[in-house]
Amino acid sequence: MIRTLLARVGLVATAAGVATLLTAAPAAAHGADAPDGTDYRTRTTGVTPQRPGLEVRVVEAGARLELTNDTGRAVEVVGYSGEPYLRITPDGVFENSRSPATYLNRTIAGDTALPADADPAAQPTWRRVADGTTARWHDQRALWQESAPPAAVRAAPDREHRVRDWTIPLRDGADQVTIGGTVDWVPPPDAYTWWAVTIVGLLAVGALGLLAAASPAGARALSAVGTLLVVGGVVAVAYPLGRELDAGAQGVGGVTLGLLSGQIWSLLTGLGAIAAGCYALARRPAADFAVALAGACLALFAGAANAAVFARSIAPVPWPPEIARVMVALVLITGTGATAAGVLRLHAAASTPTPART
């Protein structure tokens, strides 16, 4: 019996570990462009002078700017050396392959090596990079890139501070236009409080495993675990959906493409948790193992992967950061708690003596 239990628990851990290895590269690649959280709030004050049809906003928790040009004219974003960098036209979005900004803006860190032909003084060479009239890009002028916070923040980290005002020049034909904005330091939340609440919650859900191992309360307790796992799965699906909306994805096709390309593992673990929860509600055979495995994956890939919001004031979702923290805590609670409940039921099953045959 003990060997059976260890084998099943080991299989849960092995499956979760394999999934971790398989998902490590895609998750890291996506996180390089879309931070899981930050303490610097980037905002835009708009375009000056105003241009009807020309709109700008901040996306991905301040990591990118989004410029939509519905003026019917070509508008250029000016690079760091005064050169043409992006060109947003009614026929699509083009980037100047001779502009250093084209390469420096590949990542949020701005650490891409420049090719030999990158020359801000050279004649622009335009290359189409997107259809439509919307461009999204990292811009070092709208970010705080220093490893240490400003002196005012170090002196009073518990207060909000204006870090700097920023501007990005545009060209609308022969006219000079400017995008304006601000970067502010926002004090981070107390991460210990959020982790303490999460731990208490997951212990409470895990305790259902003790009830689920007993009779006659076992069936009802297992159903409760299944219901909570479904709720956690729904939240786990909603969170990456919010990240894609915050990143500027539009329409069903755009959101779906973003989920499949950048949030696929969080999405899959959320859907898997929903399926395992329904499996438990139906009281199907091997529901214990399904709940334990789905809970472990949910906690790892949809909970721990987004837990940076516990210690960051700005979350990469289009709703208040407090709601984002509650969602991540709920995913961790239901995922880890379901794992504990499933393992406890497996232990109870392995410890139950087999009736002797007569």
Rank of each mutant, 00 (worst) to 15 (best):
T198F: 04
T167A: 02
V291F: 12
P90E: 09
L271T: 05
G10A: 07
W265V: 00
C297T: 08
L298V: 06
V200H: 13
T269K: 10
G335V: 05
G110T: 03
A16F: 07
L211V: 00
R243V: 05
T134D: 09
L86F: 04
P169S: 05
Q50F: 09
I88F: 13
G92A: 03
A324R: 04
L11G: 10
E322K: 00
V186D: 05
G253F: 14
P316S: 06
T89S: 14
T167Y: 03
G201T: 08
L281M: 14
D190L: 04
R87V: 05
A217D: 04
T339C: 08
A221V: 03
A109Q: 10
D184F: 02
G342E: 10
I2M: 02
L6C: 04
A349I: 04
R127M: 06
G342Y: 06
V9S: 00
A118K: 03
R73M: 06
L170Y: 09
R357L: 15
D139C: 03
P318M: 04
A27L: 12
G242T: 00
E55M: 14
A204E: 07
R64K: 14
V231N: 02
H138S: 05
S351V: 13
E322N: 10
A135H: 08
D91T: 08
V225S: 09
W185C: 09
T227E: 08
T125N: 03
V177T: 11
A214D: 08
W166K: 01
G132F: 11
N69F: 06
W137Q: 05
V225C: 04
V163C: 01
D117H: 14
T107G: 05
F289Y: 15
G37A: 11
E244H: 05
V163W: 08
N105S: 15
Y85M: 02
A213F: 10
A74T: 13
S215I: 00
A299F: 11
A25D: 11
S97E: 03
V309Y: 07
S147T: 11
A25N: 04
D184L: 08
T107S: 09
D91C: 03
S266H: 03
R357E: 15
A315N: 09
V93C: 10
S147C: 00
G248H: 13
T20R: 09
P189T: 02
A121M: 13
W195H: 04
P353T: 12
A63W: 14
L67C: 02
G206M: 02
I274M: 15
V317F: 04
I2H: 07
T182M: 06
G262E: 12
D165G: 04
A74S: 15
A7S: 06
G303I: 00
P188A: 12
L54R: 13
A207T: 07
Q176Y: 06
W144H: 12
A7K: 00
G46E: 11
V331L: 02
L241Q: 01
G173R: 08
V200T: 13
R243N: 07
L346P: 10
G303H: 01
Q176A: 12
V237D: 10
R98K: 01
T178D: 10
A294P: 02
A156C: 01
N105V: 00
N105K: 05
T256M: 14
A213Q: 05
G262Q: 08
L346T: 02
Q145T: 09
L300C: 11
A116Q: 12
P321A: 11
R325M: 09
T20S: 14
T44G: 05
L67Q: 06
R3T: 07
C278V: 14
